[in-house]
């Protein structure tokens, strides 16, 4: 249904507010110099969640054929998996 595809203004505003809070969290972790496996996992999780909101709600793929959700969310999973492998490879043994 056309109106459902793009959600309601209230939902969009709520999601925008949480995206901003998540951005401030990422920025705060950067300012505090958070490092190590835990910090990387937290930053990746925040980024992944933000990306999922953009994909599912802002791009309206929540209501698209499942293939498009799989391709876009799958892209994010793949990218973060590759980044995680590279960062683990670079950590002191």
């Amino acid at each position: 249904m056309s109106s459902d595809v793009h959600g309601t203004p209230r939902r969009a505003t709520l999601l925008w507010a949480t995206l901003i809070v998540a951005t401030l969290l990422t920025w705060g972790m950067g300012v505090l110099g958070a490092t190590g496996k835990g910090a990387i996992a937290a930053l990746a999780a925040i980024s992944f969640w933000k990306g999922a909101v953009i994909i599912l709600d802002f791009m309206a793929l929540r209501h698209a054929p499942a293939l498009w959700r799989m391709l876009t969310l799958g892209w994010m999973v793949l990218v973060w998996a590759v980044i995680a492998i590279a960062y683990i490879k670079g950590m002191p043994q």
Binding site: A39, K50, W80
Partner: peptide, 15 residues
């Protein structure tokens, strides 16, 4: 926007 959401933590924050 989506691409920037990975670029920002990757290049500016994660270390």
């Amino acid at each position: 926007d989506l691409v920037w959401l990975i670029l920002f933590p990757l290049v500016y924050v994660i270390h």
